[in-house]
Design a protein around this nucleic acid. Sequence first.
DNA 1: ACTAAAAAAGGACATTTGTCCTGATGGCAC
DNA 2: GTGCCATCAGGACAAATGTCCTTTTTTAGT
Lengths: 190, 190
Amino acid sequence: MLRINHSFLNYIQERYDEQDRKDNIIVKHYSKGQRLLSQHENATKLFFIQDGIAKCFFTEENDKVYILEFSGRGEIVGEIELIKQIPCLCTVEAVTDVTVYAVTPDYFVQLLKQDVVLNHYLLDVFAGRIVNTASRASYQQLYTIEHSLKKLLELRSKQDVMLSKDDIASYLGVSTRSLNRVLKAENLSL
Amino acid sequence: MLRINHSFLNYIQERYDEQDRKDNIIVKHYSKGQRLLSQHENATKLFFIQDGIAKCFFTEENDKVYILEFSGRGEIVGEIELIKQIPCLCTVEAVTDVTVYAVTPDYFVQLLKQDVVLNHYLLDVFAGRIVNTASRASYQQLYTIEHSLKKLLELRSKQDVMLSKDDIASYLGVSTRSLNRVLKAENLSL
DNA sequence: ACTAAAAAAGGACATTTGTCCTGATGGCAC
DNA sequence: GTGCCATCAGGACAAATGTCCTTTTTTAGT
């Protein structure tokens, strides 16, 4: 649920330190609630999260929200859109205050071309995401909320993110009312 | 839904042709219904589909089935497991008779290390899958069957796979009964 | 400490989906 | 043709989830 990636963070920190004019990678801050990327808009940068937590979510045409993942230290966002040359798939919003390395697309493409290490990091990250996303899609589709919720709570107990109840409901892809109902029935709390 | 990838197919064909002892890549055939990979088991090969269609699906502990995707010409299966070093995430089963290039993990890892072109193909394929899987997860979670079904039928009309009703239900992650109900209500047929 | 605003809880009812069965339909061996 | 098996459609009911609102609790500001 909260994805964290340390090798990635080191990698981008090194690239940051070694740059001459300091304009390929800059450090930026976002306060809680601010958006790093907006669904359907074109991204002008891609981001490595240096600190804080962001959530990536879809807003469907019926205004319902599905949270795809929470991204923590070392996670990258916006790279899929760059590689596929498409507008932003999700909105990415700071859940806590967030500090990022903001990278220009051109520089990132250049790195991709010349640096096999980056390629391998990315492949590993992508593979992990596919495993997670696909497993979760299957699980949430084939089980009732009760099961998904238990799984989510297990995950959450290992990390400690404090999420609003709305966020949890959106992560499960259900209404808050249904989430409350299940919590009550199971005698659980958050 | 049916994923097809031509550059990948050309790439692996070239590797196949150029090999000396012809043991890193071999051509194999699977008849309709046979399994290329089995969920939870370790894969000994990874596959490029040269012809035919395979379905990748999860079987959850409650015996329900979720079809993740249908893979066609040029699609690769088993590479995620290799990269993450995990047992098979899904079962992969031939929906039609299928011909594949079966590649040894060692050789594939070697290619990954030395060939940046392969890396870029893979990144592109992975990015596409993430887009698809994530969009579908969101869509199926936040809309009723009716909407997902319409989307599926649009997709299907552009390609022509003939799928059993059970497969369609599993792709939508719902019961056959519910699928029938919606088909009737919408006056649709397959 | 008091109030306004926000977040959370939950009642009542509607809709969607699942489960379990039964009855129809269509091959196919004999 | 007859009977058997497999597949499919759908009825009846149950369970899960959503919608719409109202009430309760928390939080933040002054």
